[in-house]
Amino acid sequence: MTPLPFPPLSPEVFTIGLGGLTFSLRWYALAYIAGILIAWRLVLAAIRRPALWGPAGAPLTPEQLERFLTWAILGVILGGRLGFVLFYQPAHYLTHPFDILKVWEGGMSFHGGFLGVVAAAILFCRRERVPMLAMGDLLAIAVTPGLFLGRLANFINAELWGRPTALPWGVAFPGEAAQTCPGIEGICGRHPSQLYEALLEGLILGALILVLAFRRGWLKAPGRLMGLFVAGYGLARFLVEFVRQPDAQFITPGNPLGLALQVNGWGLTMGQLLSLPMIAVGLWFIARSRAA
Rank of each mutant, 00 (worst) to 15 (best):
A172H: 14
F155C: 08
L94F: 08
P164S: 11
V76T: 07
L115N: 15
P131R: 04
G175K: 10
A119Y: 06
A91I: 02
L115W: 13
L147K: 12
L86M: 12
R67I: 15
F114M: 01
L147S: 02
E159N: 07
A158Q: 14
L152N: 07
W71A: 15
A178H: 12
A119M: 11
P131H: 03
F114H: 03
G83N: 09
A172E: 06
I77G: 02
G80I: 01
Q89L: 14
L152P: 04
A166Y: 05
F148P: 04
P174I: 11
F84C: 02
L86F: 04
A177N: 14
I141H: 14
L147V: 12
L78T: 05
L160S: 09
L86P: 10
A153N: 08
E128H: 10
H111N: 05
Q179N: 01
L133E: 08
V103Q: 10
F114C: 14
C125S: 09
F87R: 00
A172L: 06
A166E: 12
W71G: 11
W161C: 05
T180W: 09
G83E: 00
V117A: 13
M135K: 07
G136W: 00
L147G: 00
N154I: 05
A177G: 05
Y88R: 11
A140V: 12
L167F: 15
G106Q: 01
V118D: 03
D137C: 06
I156A: 03
G80A: 13
R129V: 04
A120I: 12
G150R: 14
T70A: 09
V171K: 03
R81D: 08
F68A: 04
L115H: 01
R151Q: 04
M135Y: 14
G113A: 02
F173G: 13
R67W: 15
A177P: 03
L115T: 08
G75S: 10
T165D: 05
G170L: 06
G83Q: 03
L149E: 01
E105N: 07
A177W: 04
G162K: 06
G75H: 02
V143A: 11
A158H: 13
F173R: 02
F84Q: 10
L94M: 09
R129I: 15
D137P: 03
A166P: 08
Q89F: 02
M108F: 13
G170T: 02
I141N: 05
P97M: 07
M135L: 11
G116D: 15
V76M: 14
F110Q: 00
V143I: 13
A120K: 02
T70P: 11
E176H: 15
G170C: 06
Q179M: 05
G175Q: 14
A72L: 10
F110K: 04
L139M: 08
G80Q: 04
E159I: 11
P145S: 12
T165K: 10
R127Y: 13
G106N: 13
S109R: 06
L149K: 11
P164K: 04
A140T: 00
V118F: 04
V76W: 13
G170P: 14
G83W: 00
P164Y: 12
L123V: 07
W104N: 06
G112P: 14
G75D: 04
L86A: 05
I73P: 10
V171M: 08
